[in-house]
Structure formats: C-alpha cells, structure tokens
Amino acid sequence: MLSYQIVYGKACRIPLELEHRVFWAIKYLNFDLVKAGESRIFQLHELEDFWNFAIENTKIYKEKVKKRHDKKIQVKEFQEGELVLLLNSRLKLFPEKMKSRWSGPFKIIKVFPYGAVELKDTHSNRSFKVNGKRLQPYLGESQNFQWSPLI
C-alpha cells in the first residue's frame, strides 16, 4: 500500500485524470448535497479502514523484525573473578584505524541483575559499573596474534 493511499485514502492520480474525475463526480451527483454527504461519509469510513489495515500490518512487521533480531542475540553470562575486555564506544566519533576499540583486561567484582557489571581495573585498582553488553571475555596473552614481517 502506498503512503499516499494511507494518508488520503485513494490512489494517486495525475492532474488530467483528476480533472476528469471531478467533472464526472459533478455530473454524477448533479449537485445533490445528500448524495454528496453520503459519499463523503463513505469515503471517511473507507479511509479509517485503510488506517486500521496499515496499523495492523505495521504491528505484524514489527513482531517479525523483533523475532529475527532476538534470534541473533547471544546471551553473555559472566562470573565474578573473570577477566573481560571493555568496548570503548567513544572511538566511533574519532576513528583511528590501527587502535583497538577494546580496552582492558578488567576483573569482574560483582554481577548485578539486568546486565550491570562492576569491574576493577587491574592496573589502577579503581572500580566502576558498566553494561554487560559492552563486555567480551578475555582470552589471555597466549591467544593474541603476534605479527612478524616476512623477510
């Protein structure tokens, strides 16, 4: 359904067709106000049906998109004492190509309900709370990739 049809309740017509339709409507109704009023009320009810149809379709579409999105969500569960990396979201504003967006490692002090996590910096021993969605498990020094040039 076109957006013009949702707003105005009828298909979009070019001006020549519109002029012909107006002439036909005047000729058909013959300036009878009762018929004109009845036809206008009918058009308003039809427009309301279009709106209801559009609202139902948008609800169905949103439910389908939500199901598809929820399938892709990976549940992250962290334990106290585990080492994690923290996503630095401020690098999106000033991207530096070779700089990693992950900082850390940080040690988990406490896991709160609804995804909040309290972290402790291993270097400065300060603690702070973050959203658990910004965390990633730290795999350790042994699994980091070491680049060596080919000579």
Score class of each variant (00 low, 15 high):
M1H: 03
L2G: 15
I6Q: 10
V7F: 02
Y8C: 04
K10M: 10
A11P: 08
R13C: 07
R13F: 08
I14R: 13
L16F: 15
L18M: 13
E19P: 05
E19W: 06
E19R: 14
H20F: 12
V22S: 05
A25M: 08
A25H: 07
K27I: 06
Y28W: 06
D32K: 07
V34C: 04
V34T: 09
G37K: 15
H45K: 14
F50M: 12
W51E: 09
N52S: 04
F53L: 13
F53D: 11
I55D: 11
E56G: 06
N57W: 01
K59A: 06
Y61R: 07
K62F: 05
E63Q: 13
K64E: 15
K64C: 08
V65A: 03
V65P: 03
K66E: 15
K66N: 10
K67S: 04
K67A: 09
H69D: 13
K71F: 10
K71A: 07
K71R: 11
Q74S: 12
V75N: 09
K76W: 02
F78M: 06
F78W: 00
E82C: 04
L83E: 04
L83M: 03
V84N: 04
L87V: 04
R90L: 15
K92D: 09
K92A: 14
P95G: 05
K97T: 15
K99Q: 11
K99R: 13
R101E: 02
G104A: 05
F106W: 05
I108G: 04
I109N: 09
I109W: 00
I109G: 01
K110R: 14
K110L: 09
V111D: 05
V111R: 03
F112R: 08
P113K: 02
Y114I: 13
A116V: 11
A116T: 12
A116S: 11
K120T: 03
K120V: 12
K120D: 08
T122D: 00
H123M: 08
S124E: 14
S124D: 15
R126S: 11
K129N: 07
K129M: 12
V130R: 09
N131G: 06
G132V: 00
G132I: 00
G132A: 00
K133S: 12
K133C: 05
K133R: 10
L135S: 00
L135K: 01
Q136A: 09
Q136T: 07
Y138G: 00
L139S: 12
G140W: 00
S142L: 14
N144V: 05
F145H: 12
F145P: 08
Q146G: 04
Q146S: 12
W147A: 15
W147Y: 15
W147R: 14
L150A: 14
L150F: 04
